[in-house]
């Protein structure tokens, strides 16, 4: 955690920020991924759901979570500059993120058990 970088690193990093073109490209990718999310919903559960869409249903949640994670990572890495910035910033963000994910998953598991067994008697 100690100064991995010389004192002027912060200033140097600012210059490394990607150009506007990269930002716009990322924006297009984000837009496409969102369209995929909504499209997937429309064809599996939404207004355009047909028999073909129903076969997709088992993959719906994992694919949606993957798309969401990809968007999350793109914004964090490029728009929030974690890709170029000092590693400490990534650490300060990713460590809580891991704990947060573990908290969400374990609460769901614990409460699901509780609802399934304890509360139903």
């Amino acid at each position: 955690m100690d100064a991995h970088a010389p004192p002027t690193a912060a200033a140097a990093h600012d210059a490394d920020h990607p150009s506007s073109g990269v930002y716009v490209k990322i924006g297009v990718v984000l837009f496409v991924l969102t369209a995929l999310e909504v499209g997937l919903y429309e064809f599996t559960y939404g207004g355009h759901a047909g028999p073909a869409g129903q076969t997709l249903q088992p993959f719906f949640i994992p694919v949606l979570l993957l798309l969401s994670a990809a968007k999350f990572a793109l914004v964090a890495m490029y728009y929030m500059h974690l890709k170029q910035d000092h590693r400490l910033f990534s650490g300060v963000f990713v460590f809580p993120l891991v704990i947060a994910t573990v908290v969400i998953v374990s609460l769901i598991v614990l409460q699901a058990y509780h609802f399934a067994f304890a509360r139903s008697g």
Binding site: D2, A3, A5, T8, A9, A10, H86, L88, F89, F93
Partner: peptide, 17 residues
């Protein structure tokens, strides 16, 4: 000590929280 700005480190810390 880290070469990073205090306020930027603080906002990241806050975001982590």
């Amino acid at each position: 000590s880290t070469g990073l700005d205090n306020r930027k480190l603080a906002i990241w810390t806050f975001i982590g929280s």
